[in-house]
Amino acid sequence: MTAPPVAVTRRGGLPAGVRNPWLVFLGRRFARLVVSLAVLVTLAFLMIHLVPGDPVRAALGLTAPAELVEARRESLGLNDPLIVQYGNYLSGLFRGDLGVSMTSGVPVVDTIGQRLPASASLGLSAFVVIMVSAIPLGLAMAVLTRGGRRRGVELGFTSTSAMIAAIPEFLLAVGLIFVFAVTLGWLPVAGRGGLDSYLLPVLALSAGPTLVIARIVRVEALAVFGQDFVRTARAKRLPPWRVYFRHAFPNALTSTLTIGGLLLGSMIVGTVLVENVFAWPGMGMTIVQSILAKDYPLVQAAVLVYGLAVLLVNLMVDLLLAVVDPRSTIREA
């Protein structure tokens, strides 16, 4: 922990191989991304082969004539050796060819291109709502309840947030539909249309994560308020907002980001359920329908899309963490 001046010169003097810690960090992080991607792609490919029995027979039904099954197997390339299929799959991926839907005959890429924007707009809106509301809420709660003040506010906040966060997003969605669409009739019950159609799905998706993140922000911020450098900032007689926002808050972000990243990952998949509650024409409906119809090329592609989204969110969180907390980057490197 000590002796950085020595360490600095020594690091500079080291022979080739050890470079800028940022480059080392980025190199490692992208290597991890590539490995995760490779595993994801391979698993998506293997999925159809892991299905016990004949997946094509299962998809077409027991009554389908044997010739049809054979023809479909041939067209899916399932009769080739596994390694050849894998090669074809990979090259198809690079060409943007994800195969053809077994049920509709439409190229999978077209279906995804059509459905993904609806899901992405939903997910991004929820993400923005979470970030815009969770962090100020958590900070405000931390400032209000610092040093054991306002026990009542603290208790009220921690218990209500725990209660609401315990309700899974799709059940919350049902409750919201009942109140705002059925009983009050203010908002559409389902479907994707104007701005008003976004309100309930976004609220259902963001309520839980918002409260959970706000709780984390509060606890983290309270821990930071007690640290020496915050006292230093106060000793510099900075205005309170500057003490909180410039000094305390950025240092409270670290584990907020870590846990928040995990939450966002599960929120992405949470859209699957919420989309089905609201009959939202997005990827969530697609993946469920294709699973039910055993439309394997479409399922493969949908799993890829969701997995990719999760990996990208994780990457973003790690990069943000590195910027916010340079110590962790250098330690890791």
Binding site: L43, M47, V269, V303, V310
Partner: peptide, 21 residues
């Protein structure tokens, strides 16, 4: 670690495809 990076529901959907409805 690799598996934990993916939300459980996504894994569940993946395995639901393999094990059948």
């Amino acid at each position: 670690n690799l598996a934990v990076a993916f939300p459980a529901l996504l894994l569940a959907l993946f395995f639901a495809v393999i094990f059948g409805i």
